[in-house]
Simulated assay, not measured.
Amino acid sequence: MSDRIWRCRCGAVEATVAQVPQSGVPAVCYCTDCRAFARLHSAADTLDTAGGVALYSTTSDRLRILQGAEHLGCQRLTRRGPLRWFTTCCDTPLGNTAPFRGVPFFSLMTAGLEDAPKPRVRLHRGSATGRVPRPHGSLYALALGVARRVLASRLSGRWRDTPFFDADGRPVSKPGRPDGDDLRLAYGART
């Protein structure tokens, strides 16, 4: 187990992710929302050949912002969707959280992660834009691992220790909505 460094494209935001890979599950998500989020933030080049986004699913208490916390931006692609975090300094996508602090789930986009672990599961394969590489992994194992980590974070009280929400449980950056034209382009683009 080791902590890994995550950096945005310009280096203004730097974070550590604790105990990789034991603290989470490396995955690739092929859902249209993750793909659109990558495109919105000029990260289409990080998509795999089937349009998947590499993620590391863990809990938000496992991420520590070392520098540049003032550059965290937040948006929602849909009214009920997760909060999607990015850097305002260079528009690097960071990851996704639940819309409120009480569920400490966090999926880090691994494009900025040093020595990112290989994916163990591939999600939402039906939305892929091409043939999904094997192995596909076990969605059941992912869900069980996420539930176990979230429960452990809740029981230990670590869920309160998050860089994404303040002490009152509000996001540290007010969630915005992308411009309608940008959103349509992100969802409609072909890669």
Rank of each mutant, 00 (worst) to 15 (best):
A15S: 12
A15T: 14
A15R: 11
A15Q: 06
T16I: 07
T16M: 05
T16W: 04
T16A: 13
V17W: 07
A18T: 06
A18H: 04
Q19A: 15
V20Q: 14
V20G: 14
V20Y: 09
V20N: 15
P21L: 06
P21Q: 12
Q22C: 05
S23M: 02
V25C: 14
V25R: 15
V25W: 06
P26M: 02
P26Q: 05
A27K: 06
V28P: 12
V28R: 12
C29S: 12
Y30T: 09
Y30H: 13
Y30D: 09
C31I: 04
T32E: 14
T32I: 11
R35A: 01
R35P: 03
R35S: 03
R35Q: 10
A36L: 02
A38Q: 12
A38C: 03
A38L: 06
R39Q: 10
R39A: 07
L40G: 00
L40R: 06
H41D: 00
H41K: 10
S42A: 12
S42H: 14
A44N: 07
A44S: 15
D45V: 10
D45W: 05
D45P: 05
T46L: 11
T46M: 08
T46H: 13
L47A: 09
D48W: 04
D48I: 07
D48V: 11
A50N: 09
G52T: 10
G52H: 09
G52M: 07
G52D: 10
A54R: 14
A54E: 03
A54T: 04
A54W: 01
L55S: 08
T58E: 01
T58I: 03
T59E: 04
S60T: 09
S60D: 05
D61F: 00
L63A: 08
L63E: 02
R64F: 04
R64P: 00
I65A: 00
I65S: 01
I65H: 02
I65M: 05
G68H: 06
G68T: 01
G68A: 05
G68S: 03
A69L: 10
A69P: 08
H71D: 08
H71W: 14
H71I: 02
G73K: 07
G73C: 03
C74D: 08
Q75K: 07
Q75E: 15
Q75L: 15
R76W: 00
R76V: 02
L77T: 10
L77I: 11
L77W: 06
L77F: 07
T78M: 09
R79I: 12
R80F: 13
G81P: 04
G81W: 08
P82F: 02
R84H: 06
